[in-house]
């Protein structure tokens, strides 16, 4: 298929990019384009202007900032997946990035782009929520920080304003482990998530002191399921404790049936993958 006509601009600075967005209601940001271009080719989306941020310097880095790591807007999925920093401090995100799309998609698509697209069946969305990440949005008024758990508003809808760019995602260091696992649409872990869960845990002296689990693929948006973490805190993180906590995996989730799962099945899978992610996060 072939996109409709549009204007194209490739600013060199974030300020120029924000200005381009602010001055044009029909403008859309493009980083890797892996989510945007297929929609445009099928003419489901026809922005008047594409603001290609691909030529802005400095956005393609993963940085160690002491108490957190920062993943810039142009970091590709493949780079997120292969990064020592991400693997060390945010294994859930590294894993989710490695399970996003296929090799070519991971070579072009960006972690931040996928997050901003807010697909209900994406992988890294759940990871950043579970990791307690902070999303940094840059708009005409400067930058603002949005907690990952508040970032995903609805299907394909993030908390970004139309004139804002997700310039980086910050992931706090700490905790004793994190993990992501999913069932893919083609079975195994291939393709978009039928259901997936990311878990982050902190375990001190044999007791879980903090835990967060986020699910993706099962509902109207990727989301933090606070009840799972709450149920796990104070336990020893045993298989029984995990199983009991995972039972809460759909609390607050608006389940959504699709070609790959009924609501009942998705609810079941949310529990299965919450348990699997927790088990792996705890080194099991």
């Amino acid at each position: 298929m072939y996109p409709r006509k549009f204007d194209y601009t490739a600013p060199r600075t974030i300020a120029d990019a924000v200005a381009a967005l602010a001055g044009d209601e029909g403008a859309k940001v493009m980083a890797g384009g892996m989510s945007l271009l297929p929609l445009m080719k099928m003419r489901l989306l026809s922005p008047a202007t594409i603001v290609d941020i691909g030529r802005i310097d400095g956005l393609d880095r993963i940085e160690d900032r002491g108490d957190h790591i920062a993943v810039g807007a142009l970091v590709r999925h493949a780079e997120t997946a292969a990064s020592d920093l991400v693997q060390t401090h945010a294994p859930a995100l590294a894993r989710a990035a490695s399970l996003t799309g296929d090799v070519q998609v991971r070579n072009k698509g960006t972690t931040c782009g996928s997050l901003a697209h807010a697909d209900i069946a994406a992988d890294q969305t759940a990871a950043v929520i579970a990791l307690g990440a902070t999303m940094v949005a840059t708009g005409p008024g400067g930058t603002r920080e949005i907690a990952a758990a508040d970032f995903f508003v609805d299907t394909l809808t993030s908390a970004l304003a139309p004139d804002e760019i997700l310039t980086e995602v910050r992931i706090p260091k700490g905790g004793s482990g994190s993990a992501y696992d999913k069932l893919g649409r083609r079975g195994g872990r291939s393709d978009y998530a039928v259901a997936g869960a990311a878990a982050w845990v902190d375990k001190t002296n044999g007791s879980i002191t903090a835990a967060r689990v986020a699910v993706t693929g099962v509902g109207t948006k990727p989301m933090l399921v606070e009840a799972v973490g709450a149920a796990l805190v104070g336990t020893d993180g045993s298989p029984e404790a995990i199983a009991a906590a995972a039972e809460h995996a759909t609390e607050g989730v608006t389940l959504l049936e699709d070609l790959y799962g009924s609501e009942e099945y998705k609810a079941h899978l949310a529990k299965v993958y919450a348990a699997r992610a927790l088990t792996e996060a705890l080194g099991g």
């Binding site: 099928m42 296929d102 649409r185 083609r186 079975g187 195994g188 291939s190 393709d191 978009y192 070609l259």
Partner: peptide, 24 residues
């Protein structure tokens, strides 16, 4: 190839019509 009751094809792209890949 999945149709709804009105005859709409719900699996019209390779996204929703998954043919096997090497990994499968």
């Amino acid at each position: 190839a999945i149709y709804d009751d009105d005859g709409n094809l719900l699996s019209s792209s390779l996204m929703d019509y998954p043919i096997p890949t090497a990994a499968d």
